[in-house]
Design a protein around this nucleic acid. Structure first.
Length: 264
DNA sequence: ATGGTTGCTTAGCAA
């Protein structure tokens, strides 16, 4: 029998600003695996030692001011191995949006991803978002095995369906909901990934992101754009999913809440 | 009342 574990994903919107909060949260929740996005720092500034003291190994790709992703895993599960940064294709792309690592004791390959936002439909940035999703699918085709345990966790900047949006009319055809963006996500998932939350919960009104403006969080004007996707060997082990709204409260929160998935 | 929030980097961009 494989070991049960908890995997989580959290866009922290600047690790420098969120480190204290992250350390408190890790002490409280103790997830086995955590994928982080929007570190907004160079890898040389990453707090490797503080996280180790908190009980976690880390694999990180960073860049100055923007993007940056990491995979954390509890030290007891062994040093992260086969750490691979980036999409590994022939595109010259300086943006730090993907890192892969394997957690030895759990036998799980983990990808932390920060899909481009895309800003405005029709812009160069939107074209980059769509191309990035095609590149991610190609990465899965070439480098991953759908019959093996795989997690693809992160901020996808896509609400898969209208039930994932507080006001679908307001968001219709924006970069978050555009049919081409949703199709890009569908094609990633068609490789062999399930949306862990939807395996156990059909409810609408479940969001992971709320704008800082206009009291969006207390009004629950949110979007479900952060996802834990899992390959079939893990799908059948999904036991419970939690969006940790507590972590979006109080002073100086990220604009995203962590999403946690328990695998039996 | 023509706003609104945060973070990075320094007035403008990105989300």
């Amino acid at each position: 029998m494989p070991l049960p574990f908890v995997a989580a994903t959290w866009n922290v919107n600047s690790l420098r600003m969120r480190l204290e909060r992250l350390l408190l949260w890790l002490a409280e929740r103790r997830p086995d695996i955590l994928c982080l996005q929007e570190l907004k720092m160079e890898a040389s500034l990453f707090p490797t030692e503080q996280l180790r003291q908190a009980g976690y190994h880390a694999a990180v790709v960073g860049q100055k001011a923007y993007n940056g992703v990491a995979v954390l895993s509890r030290i007891e599960h062994g040093e992260l191995v086969d750490v691979v940064p980036g999409l590994q294709d022939d595109v010259d792309d300086p943006e730090a949006r993907l890192i892969a690592a394997t957690v030895p004791a759990l036998g799980v390959r983990v990808l932390s991803v920060y899909v481009p936002n895309g800003q405005v439909v029709g812009s160069d940035k939107f074209a980059y978002k769509l191309a990035w999703l095609r590149r991610l699918r190609r990465y899965l085709d070439q480098r991953c095995d759908p019959a093996a345990p795989l997690l693809v966790c992160g901020d996808f900047n896509i609400a898969p369906e209208d039930r994932d949006v507080h006001d679908p009319e307001l968001w219709k055809d924006t970069v978050i909901c555009h049919p081409e963006a949703r199709q890009g996500l569908d094609e990633v998932r068609a490789w062999g990934l399930d949306d862990a939350l939807r395996l156990v919960c059909p409810d609408g009104g479940l969001y992971t992101y709320w704008d800082y403006r206009q009291l969006a969080f207390p009004k629950n004007h949110g979007l479900r754009i952060d996802h834990v996707l899992c390959s079939r060997p893990l799908s059948q082990r999904v036991q419970e999913v939690l969006i940790d709204r507590q972590a979006r409260k109080g002073k100086h929160p990220s604009d995203h809440a962590p999403l946690l998935v328990t695998f039996r």
